[in-house]
């Protein structure tokens, strides 16, 4: 077994009196595709945002290569440059073209020169099929295209882990397909990913590990076979039965 790349230990998060995450534990090894499923409001997105330190955990540890990044005094920016994130609402920079979106991080954060950054960006844009659109501004392309650019932007930083926060929830069914196929392709290339999603087929077919969250805790986790074929927790059974009948 490889050394884990990311370990979440006893993570809790509350907003005031409202406890959103309670004692979350899980481990991600290199090459793992972990999907986090569960009803809305169960804390999936908050978990992902805590892992990327967009939210500060109330307690617990997030170990990245064994080092706790939730500690005070840890350079959050440096850590985030190694952990990419793809958002539900894309969050492409509106003032930049598609190409600039994918090069700005490389130039400013990784301090690459413009030509290296451009070449690397083009490689990833080609991978997601967006190379012809490098001159477009985000407002000029469709949602699915935006999300593919957002994935290329994250990839261009060459992250060790890529987090997806419901990447297809804002898209129509056709666009969902184009984004999922990009993600499936990434998984096959061995990218380590944590995916929060409502796409059960993706969770079942692509992931190596599935986490089912309910009410701020991990209700059940296991391989896709275990979770989808023989869920033990009645809450998991109930949740999955809705998707099966659909």
């Amino acid at each position: 077994m490889n050394e884990p790349i990311l370990e979440v230990r006893h993570l809790s998060k509350s907003f005031g009196a409202n406890v959103v995450l309670r004692d979350i534990d899980f481990t991600v090894a290199p090459g793992d595709v972990t999907t986090v499923i569960g009803p809305s409001g169960s804390g999936k997105s908050t978990l992902l945002r805590c892992i990327n330190l967009l939210e500060t955990p109330t307690s617990g540890e997030i170990l990245f290569h064994g080092k706790n990044v939730a500690d005070r005094g840890v350079n959050a920016a440096a850590y985030r440059s190694k952990v990419g994130m793809v958002f539900q609402s894309f969050n492409l920079f509106n003032n930049m073209t598609v190409l600039d979106n994918c090069t700005v991080g490389q130039r400013k954060v990784l301090k690459r020169d413009a030509e290296t950054a451009r070449r690397s960006a083009m490689r990833y844009l080609e991978q997601v099929g967006m190379a012809p659109y490098i001159n477009a501004k985000p407002r000029q392309i469709s949602g699915g295209q935006k999300q593919r650019v957002a994935i290329a932007r994250a990839l261009a930083m060459e992250p060790e882990v890529l987090l997806f926060d419901e990447p297809t929830s804002a898209l129509d069914p056709e666009m969902v397909g184009e984004v999922l196929s990009v993600m499936r392709d990434l998984a096959q290339r061995g990218m380590t990913m944590i995916v929060v999603t409502h796409e059960m087929a993706f969770a079942r077919d692509v992931s190596s590990h599935v986490v089912f969250m309910d009410g701020g805790v991990i209700a059940e986790e296991g391989t896709p076979q275990q979770l989808f074929e023989a869920p033990k927790n009645p809450r998991t059974q109930e949740f999955l039965s809705r998707f099966r009948s659909a």
Binding site: L54, A77, F90, F93, G105, A150, R153
Partner: peptide, 12 residues
């Protein structure tokens, strides 16, 4: 979201 997008790629 613009700030979050920038932070997510490691910008200070």
């Amino acid at each position: 979201g613009q700030t979050e997008g920038a932070k997510a790629i490691g910008m200070n």
